[in-house]
Amino acid sequence: MLSKRLIACLDVRDGKLAKSVRFVNTKDIGDPVEKAREYYADGLDELVFYDITASSDKRAIMLDVVEAVAKEVFIPLSVGGGVRSVADATDLRLAGAEKINVNSAAVARPALIAECAEAIGNQNVVLSMDIRQVPESADCPSGYEIVINGGRTPMGIDGLAWALEGERLGAGELVVNAIDADGTRDGYELKLTAMIAEAVRIPVIASGGAGKPEHLKEALTTGKADAALVASMVHYGDYRVSELKRWLHQEGVKMRMSW
């Protein structure tokens, strides 16, 4: 039986680790390569790097980070943030990323998903969606709306419709990032996550809001997610990766328990 996955997301800016709270006031918390090594040794199932480097001339630093991590960490490595073209995706893949996350650029130009799927395979294209709750409307009948630019720009696109469109265009996996919950540690947006997980036939990763082990269990059971993404709850040493996996396992969630 397939295990549920615990995924840690590391936000990287100018080659250094950062964790955003509601995407503002990011503060530097260390070396991404060292953190990756630590989580790998502690049983992490998958790693995501999100490049939040502002200036484009510093983007090449990310390739060095990916390359350094890929030499030592032998679990799937997913990289996103600023991927605008097949060339960006291919550069990251050559540096050692397994999967490529597309987000804002795919909202602006959906064909990017199909182009990346064609070039690197559907299973390696992850559509990352930042979604906020809104009143139900003609544009957003699900009551959830796609936002971009780190949550600053609402797009008037329905969250559920975009998930289905992403799957149709060839995304192999979806990250459902609830912008309202991101960084709050109050728990994942379970209703949103379950709504999308039930509508698509590709894996769904719950993201945004994890603060306690119970939140992970909720996402992987009632939220119907295939994987739970964590950030601050492990980055600051509040919980260890192995501790979370052990707890979930004891609670009856199927996890990989030998590493």
Partner: peptide, 13 residues
Amino acid sequence: RPELKIPHMGWNE
């Protein structure tokens, strides 16, 4: 089973 996704992606025994 509708809850099983394709591809089979992840860790398995």
